[in-house]
Each structure stands twice: as C-alpha cells, then as structure tokens.
C-alpha cells in the first residue's frame, strides 16, 4: 500500500508531506502509548494515534515511521508539524476514530506489526 492509498481509505487531509504519496507502507500500528510503539513497531509503518504532542513525532523519527495519522479530526500544533517536516514524516488527519481507521486499513490489506522491534529473538 502507498501513503496516498492510506489517505484515500481514511478520507484524510494531508498536513505535511503531500509530495510523498507514492511512498510504500508495509504495516500499521494504532496506539496512544508511545512506550508500546517503541517496543513493537518496525520501519515503513503508519502510526494512527489520538495523542498529540511532539513526542509522537520524536518517537516516529527514532523508529523510521514514515507516516502519522491523527484520528478523530485532531490537529497538531505548527511546532509539531514543523518537527515532522524536518524529519521527512508525512502527517495527516482523519475524522475516523483510531479503531475505525485501523479497521479500514486492515480490511484493505495493511497488516499490523507482529514482531517486536529488537536485536534479539525471544
């Protein structure tokens, strides 16, 4: 799936990164808990979250998350958007709830992250 397809499926508005619609995404993750995101996510991932603060962008940068979707129509501050711009992360906003947005992406074939992010197998 591409970031552009994510935008279409979620009927989202692009806030940052309109030029990156052709970039591929392989998995998605829905969470307001950045601790969990840090423990489970891999790269080329879409993060769907209702949490709005700069740490959503910083967490995403550390993990090479390429796209953040803010759910329930929430809009981040200019500072948060600028940070995302600096990191090359695409940001969009959807009116859907986190649950619905995750469900829509899943039924369109975008799987969740199954494997833990980590150097060692458990």
């Amino acid at each position: 799936m591409t970031i552009g397809e994510v935008k279409e499926i979620l009927e989202a508005n692009i806030l940052i990164g309109g030029e990156r619609m052709d970039e591929p995404v392989e998995t998605a993750c829905g969470s307001d808990l950045m601790s969990d995101v840090l423990a489970f996510v891999k790269d080329k991932t879409v993060l769907i979250t209702g949490l709005i603060n700069p740490h959503v962008v910083r967490t995403s940068e550390m993990l090479d998350i390429t796209c953040i979707v803010f759910s329930r129509g929430k809009l981040p501050s200019v500072e948060i958007l600028e940070e995302a711009e600096d990191c090359g992360i695409t940001v969009m906003s959807t009116k859907m709830t986190t649950y619905t947005a995750c469900g829509e992406l899943y039924i369109h074939g975008l799987p969740g992250t199954k494997k833990r992010a980590g150097a060692k197998e458990e």
């Binding site: 307001d32 808990l33 950045m34 601790s35 969990d36 995101v37 840090l38 423990a39 949490l51 603060n53 740490h55 959503v56 967490t59 833990r116 992010a117 980590g118 150097a119 060692k120 458990e122």
Partner: peptide, 18 residues
C-alpha cells in the same frame, strides 16, 4: 500523559542492545 511510563523502557533497551 505524554504516552510513556508503561514499564517497557528498560526491557526494550535490553532487547535492542547487543
């Protein structure tokens, strides 16, 4: 409130480090 403090930090560091 910022989305941290779930008690995942130290175990996650150990998992990522060699």
């Amino acid at each position: 409130t910022l989305g941290f403090g779930a008690g995942m930090g130290l175990p996650n560091m150990k998992r990522n480090a060699t």
